[in-house]
Design a binder for these strands. Structure first.
Lengths: 205, 205
DNA sequence: GCATCAATCTGAACAATGTTCACATTCAAG
DNA sequence: CTTGAATGTGAACATTGTTCAGATTGATGC
């Protein structure tokens, strides 16, 4: 909300300040509410300053996306393991969709090919890293070897399992539940009451 | 490609001309390449003209989205029915993902909450209509009543089946296969060789 | 201490975009 | 015809991303 006033001419750590500013803006106003100038003003800096730290808007947003993927990965890693494969896969999927629902703007960002440099090595690394736990859970459920994502294998069951969670996440942030559920808060209603049933139907014990 | 020159002061049918222009631009340059001014120039008209026919950029893009959903629905309706539920559901899902792969720009458009008026009745109607065939195929596969989309029921198996296709479509247009497949044309490779296996694994006979 | 050079930031450009508005042109109904 | 509504023009205006010459500072070598 407040533009922190600066005493020194140099900022000190403008790079991370811009990333955090961008993340806050996207969290509060969505990707479409983000502008580079806004992030600069938020960091208390002139419009031209960011260009010294990022390769344009795309560079900054790519850095934000890396952060988002890392947090997503951390959240999925922190989910409890029951030892039962079906339960664990459902837990991972629930976590994935919940993350999207709780961070709609940021989740939209990491899917926007036009806003992000999808060839950035850090981004690729982070996006893979975020899904390792999910991939392991899916592999366990289908009785397959845990995939080495660096070998770039694409097993049918795995792809399907990823797609279902990814599709549910997109449906939620695209507001599709609002088209089906006539409730005050369609997204959270979907998450709390319907999503568990959907996941149970998809991957029964 | 060419801006059609106009002899008369009035265009005649600027509204549909703008819709078609926008669709062409999005098809060739993606949603991010679209600008309202470009569509106006394409229709051979001044930048202020579109405002007499659409409620801003969002209005025009919503109209385009309606067209896209209608075509998607038509394509899914035209798919052959084998009588075998599993086969038919796979066919529908294949058609859905293929549509996204063949029309990446337009598919991205119909998922962009920020660019489209999701409350527009025509849009809602078209988006439902497009998925009736898919919903019927899914209902048949799971041995359920074909859902009345206007009653806004949300059955777990149905939601899961929609999500899987939707998720696969998003993965394709987000270029995720390119992260996994080191082939010259990852999208079409995925569609042609891997997608059938994924669908078969998801909904076996 | 101090000189020098790279890093960092400013502020003013610039082109492009969506939108609005006064005005021009045309259509269509009485 | 004539009169009002519909449609199109073109010039605004604010905003945006980006660039760039110059200002300021930090760091390194002496």
């Amino acid at each position: 909300m407040s533009s922190p006033e600066r005493d020194k001419y140099h900022h000190g750590d403008l790079k991370t300040a811009l990333i955090k500013a961008a993340e806050n803006i996207i969290r509060e106003e969505g990707v479409e509410g983000f502008t580079l100038r806004k992030a600069a003003k938020f960091a208390g800096v002139s419009p031209g300053a960011p260009s010294h730290h990022f390769n344009g808007t795309k560079g900054l947003l790519t850095a934000v996306a890396v952060r988002v993927f890392k947090r997503l990965g951390a959240e999925l890693n922190a989910l409890p393991l029951s030892g039962r494969a079906a339960q664990d896969l459902r837990t991972q999927a629930f976590g994935y969709v919940t993350f999207a629902a709780n961070n709609p703007g940021l989740f939209r960002l990491i899917c926007r090919v036009d806003l992000i440099d999808f060839k950035d090595p850090e981004f690729i690394q982070a996006s893979f890293q975020a899904l390792t736990q999910y991939a392991h859970a899916a592999a366990a459920y289908f009785g397959q070897e845990p995939p080495d994502l660096h070998k770039r294998a694409f097993r049918p069951h795995m792809a399907s399992a990823m797609a279902t969670a990814h599709g549910l996440a997109h449906m939620v942030i695209e507001g599709r539940p609002a088209l089906l559920l006539e409730t005050p808060d369609p997204a959270s209603t979907f998450i709390e009451t319907l999503l568990p049933a959907v996941l149970l139907a998809t991957w029964p014990d």
